[in-house]
Structures are given as structure tokens and as C-alpha cells.
Amino acid sequence: MKKIIALLLVIVLALSLVACGSKESASADNQPAAETSTNQTTETSTEGSTTKRIFMSAAYYTAPYGSPLMAAVEEKAKALGYEIQIVDGEANADKQLTQFKTAVADGFDALIYWPGDSASTPPVVEYLNSTGLPWVDINTLPDDSIIDQCTVIASNEVQIGRELGKLIVQYYEENSFEEMNIAYVEGDSGSSYTIHLTEGINEVLADYPNIKILNEPMYANFDPAQAMTITEDLITKFGDEIDLVVTQDGGMFQGAYNAIMSAGKLGEYGIICQGQDLIVKEKLLSGELYASVAQDPFQEGSLAVEVLDKLIKGEAVDAWTYTPTGPIFAADIDNYSWF
């Protein structure tokens, strides 16, 4: 008896899937997903409300930078009269591809893609373009081979690196160092952000042979706790040789700052970072942080929806809309949003 009921339940499940799927499969079997979804988009628009729906897959949903960025996307989308759904792509290109396919099948009208890394973007971009829906890439740059097929809203990451490099040079010149040694804490070894920032810094420092990065690449994965451990290790290893500590974001700055404070080296080492975190603002004001470099998640999120709105309306947009960047000193803090 039990086996029969179990079997029946399995059959119900199978039939639900197959029979219901086959309703549309008869017409959709030989169509690509995109065509099917386009039909459904029309269906949703005509049957349901006329509010257009935007779907966003965010690779770094839980990153500190992600929260204000997604809040800005939501706020702007609502202000422009769109419904918005944001899901966690978990920095997994295949998962993001699946999410987009699900969203397209569900009749979303426009898409926002925040990739986890550049290398895995080609098949996702190929799919997004095949849907015929308006979409934008945000924050992480697509692979060079397909960047011309995308509408990008992102910082010029190499430029952020250059800005960091310029701040390092400015600190070097202001303090009249003969030689200056840097302890450098990087983010995620695989991310384009980390790679490009380092590229920008190295580009500037190439003209200053007396400025030296002491350590081999050390990755804290944008994690304050890991940044603290790495900085502690660097202080133990290099001690007074260090003149300046540089971190690639505000979260890691917090970890590095705590390590420097624990070692009693506050004031002895200069500190420079990238970021607009509240801790960065606080330490800029107190003078313990020399300067930061802006990459504004609020502007980036807002810009993405503005550009997407234009695409939805069929207006022309730039292939790459840059998120503004530049140095932030204590005197400039009122000009920026903080998170």
C-alpha cells in the first residue's frame, strides 16, 4: 500500500512537470529560450499590470559595497516606476546564467548583470544578447573579447588604481621620504577589481623607484578579519621598515587599522585606502587615514537604472558609463555619500 501511494505521488510529480511543460513545449520545443520568453513578456504585459519589471543578478550580494549599490538600484528603479527583483548570484557565472534564464522565462522586461569575474562573462553576455531584452552590465567589467557587445556602468578600475598611486606619491612627497616602503593588502586574487587596481598603482609607481612595495601579494578577500591578520603578520615581519599601509577597500582598511592600533603603530605608519565606508569617513576626520579614493556605489547603482531606462525607451546610450572616481581628503567628505 505504502509503495503504491509513494509511486502515485512520484507519478503526480512527474506528470505535473511533463504534462504542464508539454502544454507549451508543443509550440516552444524548437524555439530558443529567448523567443519563448519574449512571448511571455508580452503575455505578462498584456495580462498583468503594465509596470515593467527589472531583474538583477548580483554576484557580490553580501559584500559591503553591494548593499548600498543594490539599495540605489532599488530606489532609482522605483522612482522611475519599475518593479525590481534582485537575487544573489553567489559569484557563480553558471548560477547567474540560470537565474537570467528563469527571469526571462518569467517575463521580466529588462536585466542588470553584476558579474563575479570577467573571464566567465562571454556565455552569459551571449545569452543576454540573444534574449533581445535591454540589459546592462554593472560594476565588474566583461571580458575584453565581448566588451563591445555590452553596455557597461562601472568604474575605470585601473583609474582607481592610478588615483591610489597618485595618493601614495603625494604622501611620499609631502613627507620628504628618501625611500618609502609600503605594506599592501589586496582584495580577491581572482577579481578584476583587485587586478586592475594593482595594475593602476604599479603604473604610477613605475616612475618612482624609491617607493617600494615590501610584501608579495597578500589577499584578504575583502574581509576585515583577514586584513587584520595579514597586517599583523606584515608588521611582525617588516616592523619599522613600513612607512605606509595601503588597502584596496574600506572593510580591509578597518582590519588593517585595528592591527596597526594593536601594534601601537598608529601615527607611525601612514594609511591610504579605497572606499567610502563610514569607518573611512571617521578616520579621515580624525586624521588617522591620509586619504581615500572614491568609488560611489550609490551613483553606480543609480546610473545603471538610468542607463537601462534609456535602453528600455530605445534611446541611445554610451557603451561605457563611468562611475566617477577621485581622491577624498578630510576636507571633501561632505561631497560624498557614505555607507
Binding site: 503526480v12 534564464k101 517575463g107
Partner: peptide
């Protein structure tokens, strides 16, 4: 089974062939 049946009726896009194959 209950969840699939619920989705089939509550969200018609769930039963589309494109979604099932996804």
C-alpha cells in the same frame, strides 16, 4: 510534489518548457 503543484498553478511561467529545462 505539493510545492510543484503549487508552483504550476500559482506561477504559470514555472511550467514553461524553457524554465523546466533551465
Amino acid at each position: 510534489t505539493a510545492f510543484v503543484v503549487f508552483m504550476v498553478f500559482y506561477r504559470p511561467s514555472f511550467r514553461s518548457w524553457a524554465n523546466l529545462t533551465t
